[in-house]
Design a protein around this nucleic acid. Structure first.
Length: 280
DNA sequence: ACCCAGGAAATTC
DNA sequence: GAATTTCATGGG
């Protein structure tokens, strides 16, 4: 991998294990949209970015050296050797190898802890298009505008000043009260996400589950996508099916310290191939 | 009308 | 304590 800095853009060449479509559409994030062929626009850490890819060259538009080094490098997990992780995971199980080869350009994004927590609270018993819609309305309503019809993810402090009735226009249903509880606990520092990030997984999960509407699955998504805890293995309906049908004699622990990455390959592979789970 | 969606809380057994 | 029902909303 090679990085070239221009005036208002950064170009990465010879990138490996990196595919924008697979990264943004494997179900780990909800705020990136395809704006053109091989091009996505989105917001993270309060910064807007347009990013495009052709083969092993990736261009970040509207990005200076500072933003790249402080935000996007870690956001796209560029310090992690996915080639190495993939070959190690592939040797564990033939079906995992198959899932990984289906979308070899997946990377786990390092999202903001609060955004990950809030997003996956909204995700429960919900479908992805509708999750994206709710989060879009949430950001438009309560996020800081950052130009070009784009908005930062609203802070916990801002949302803590909302009532359940205030959130009605989001049409988030029964999840509104969970959003308010999470925002309040985070804003008052009753729940400190940066401290939780430093804790061992078991303890961190226990802390996160003090929030109403946060169970094991939402807690694990928060830790995997928002706290860099790659051993977490969120067990949703798809992953339960996948484990029963594709890996009947394995448990998440069998996938090791990068189980969360394995989970992402399996989740995406399963969702794109639902016929695997049809009864015959 | 029914079923399901990146679940968790409330209720019942 | 384990199993079942309920919780809003929208699409198929």
């Amino acid at each position: 991998m090679n990085v070239i800095y221009k005036n208002d853009s950064v170009i990465i060449t010879e990138v490996s294990s990196f595919n924008l479509e697979q990264i943004f559409e494997c179900g780990q994030c909800f705020r990136w949209n395809k704006t053109d062929c091989n091009t996505y626009s989105g917001v993270a850490f309060g910064k807007a970015l347009t990013i495009s890819q052709k083969d092993t060259t990736v261009t970040l538009q509207g990005c200076n050296k500072n933003d790249f080094e402080n935000v996007w490098y870690s956001y796209f997990d560029l310090g992690v050797d996915y080639d190495g992780i993939k070959s190690s995971l592939a040797s564990l199980h033939p079906v995992l190898k198959e899932a990984q080869q289906y979308a070899p350009g997946i990377r786990i994004l390092s999202q903001e802890p609060w955004e990950a927590l809030c997003s996956f609270i909204i995700s429960q018993n919900n479908n992805i298009p509708r999750i994206k819609g709710i989060i879009d309305r949430l950001c438009r309503q309560y996020g800081e505008p950052i130009g070009d019809n784009l908005y930062a993810f609203p802070t916990a402090e801002r949302l803590s000043r909302c009532t359940v009735d205030d959130l009605a226009p989001l049409r988030s249903g029964f999840r509104a009260k969970y959003i308010v509880d999470a925002a309040t606990k985070v804003a008052t520092d009753e729940i400190n996400l940066h401290e939780i990030k430093k804790m061992p997984v078991e303890q961190a999960r226990k802390e996160l589950m003090k929030i109403k509407g946060v169970g094991p699955k939402v807690a694990d998504c928060t830790m995997l996508y928002g706290m860099g805890k790659k051993e977490c293995f969120p067990m949703d309906v798809w992953m339960k099916r996948a484990m029963e049908v594709l890996f009947p004699n394995l448990t998440p622990e069998d996938f090791g310290t990068n189980a969360g990455i394995a989970q992402q390959y399996i989740f995406h592979y399963s969702r794109m191939n639902p016929q695997l789970f049809e009864q015959s």
